[in-house]
């Protein structure tokens, strides 16, 4: 184990990764659910693990949480190998599965007390801990209620509190927001941000892009068991940025024609097209590859040619579009 670890450190001395997998493979019989996955989750990040249903997110997480053995490949959590040091891994993670049961015959505080005891926290510390945890997830007022009487969102928050009982370095959350109503989703999202601020690394899976774009610092996209894109949100955005769509609105067809002929020769303009006139106004769509300065210079060129520009809008590429573009052709 030690030789392996030093080897790993030598290979990647600069990045501080709290979760790392190398060519992780999980087969169920002939079916390959996870196919050579290499993840890198930096310390302190909020990492969105995005992919459609059946992509292998849950399977990956079950390997990271020592519940399932990888068929091949390696994975480390907080520097511990998931196959060789499962207890050390368990000590450093808080895990929330996608589907989990809560005991129906327990009170909220008993639920937390039980799990804290499972993490070997002495009884005299547990009382204080439970108060703190309930406060954090805003369930103090439900302390003595039965767990199965809670709403789904509350159960999810309670479960989140449970994952925090032993103050783990990293939270592994499988679809934490699925099945929640919009309000509960926002609450969970805020809670995750709050936890990240407390210094926890959050590695969570989702098939809903909105979750990712709002709070994530990092993102990994998985499809059919393989990572197809991974990195910080900023890097991902700028990687997508060069390809822009600019829509110019003018008064009539002639002006539109002038705009098209004017911009077509500009370097970086891939194509132009007339869009359906809207409200009697004509619109031209410009496909452009270039940076912000380039966009500004197109704008300037139009103004210089004395064209009455009614609108000059760059479509913001949201994550959805980015996701569609990246996964294009891999999955229908």
């Amino acid at each position: 184990m030690y030789s392996e670890q030093t080897a790993r450190v030598e290979l990647q001395p600069m990045v501080d990764l709290i979760i790392e997998t190398r060519d992780l493979v999980k087969k169920f019989g002939k079916f390959t659910a996870v196919d050579g996955l290499s993840l890198e989750v930096p310390v302190g990040s909020i990492y969105g693990f995005v992919g459609p249903n059946g992509a292998g997110k849950t399977t990956t997480m079950r390997m990271l949480t020592t519940l399932t053995r990888p068929t091949s490949g390696e994975a480390w959590v907080a520097g511990h190998s998931v196959t060789d040091e499962p207890r050390a891994v368990r000590r450093s993670i808080g895990y929330m599965p996608d589907e989990f049961g809560v005991y129906d015959d327990m009170r909220v505080w008993e639920y937390l007390d039980f799990f804290a005891a499972c993490y070997d926290i002495p009884e005299n510390e547990r009382k204080r801990l439970i108060v703190d945890l309930l406060e954090l997830v805003d369930l103090s007022h439900r302390r003595d209620d039965m767990v199965d009487k809670l709403s789904r969102g509350m159960k999810q928050r309670l479960s989140l509190a449970r994952t925090l009982a032993h103050d783990p370095a990293v939270l592994i959350l499988d679809e934490p927001a699925s099945g929640l109503d919009p309000r509960a989703r926002v609450e969970i999202r805020e809670l995750l941000v709050e936890l990240a601020r407390m210094g926890k690394t959050i590695f969570f899976s989702t098939h809903i892009l909105a979750d990712v774009s709002e709070i994530c610092t990092h993102i990994g996209i998985i499809e059919e068991g393989q990572i197809i894109a991974q990195g910080s949100m900023d890097a991902m955005r700028s990687q997508m940025q060069p390809h822009r769509e600019i829509t110019v609105t003018v008064r009539d067809a002639d002006a539109a024609e002038v705009v098209r002929s004017l911009v077509t020769p500009i370097e970086g303009v891939v194509s132009t097209a007339d869009l359906e006139p809207k409200g009697g106004r004509h619109r031209v769509r410009i496909d452009y590859i270039g940076d912000d300065d380039g966009v500004a210079s197109i704008n300037r060129a139009l103004t210089a040619a004395n064209i009455a520009v009614l609108g000059f809008v760059e479509e913001t590429r949201d994550l959805e579009a980015m996701f569609m573009r990246v996964t294009k052709g891999i999955v229908s």
Partner: peptide, 13 residues
């Protein structure tokens, strides 16, 4: 069956 076993198995119990 109640899907609580995995939770226990990831603790130090």
């Amino acid at each position: 069956e109640r899907q609580t076993y995995d939770l226990l198995r990831t603790t130090l119990l």
